[in-house]
Amino acid sequence: MHIVRQLGAMPGVIAAGEYAYHGDDFSFDGALTEEFVHIVSIMCRVNTLVAHMQSEVLDSFTGQTGLRPVQGWVVRGARLSFCAVGNYFAMVDNREGVLDDVVRILRARVGDLRSEGLPGLYARLGGDVHEALY
């Protein structure tokens, strides 16, 4: 299942999408308009670059840290959260378990959990990764 469709089908996910590191391409699933997702994709690109810059500066001053390279970021709002990993993003409800599941799926699909068998397998099958694993 495509990552965006998989995330978009999860309860508590308001919208999910894919943005380009260069240029303006994007795709999405959920309750947003194209105009809004265009802005979201620019925001994702900028924030990801800022986080990369910060991790490079940190690493150059302090030596090896576990932050470099950056995989993504999360913003926690009052009722919604926004997360981006790789070139995928999701806007999620703050109900219990949603943010952790979405980030885990994204890390399993495009991040540091790709090489780990079970999280990767469950993330590809879809469904509640946390419940299946823990």
Partner: peptide, 8 residues
């Protein structure tokens, strides 16, 4: 907010 690194 959170920044997600490779290990931390």
């Amino acid at each position: 907010l959170s920044v997600i690194g490779l290990e931390w």
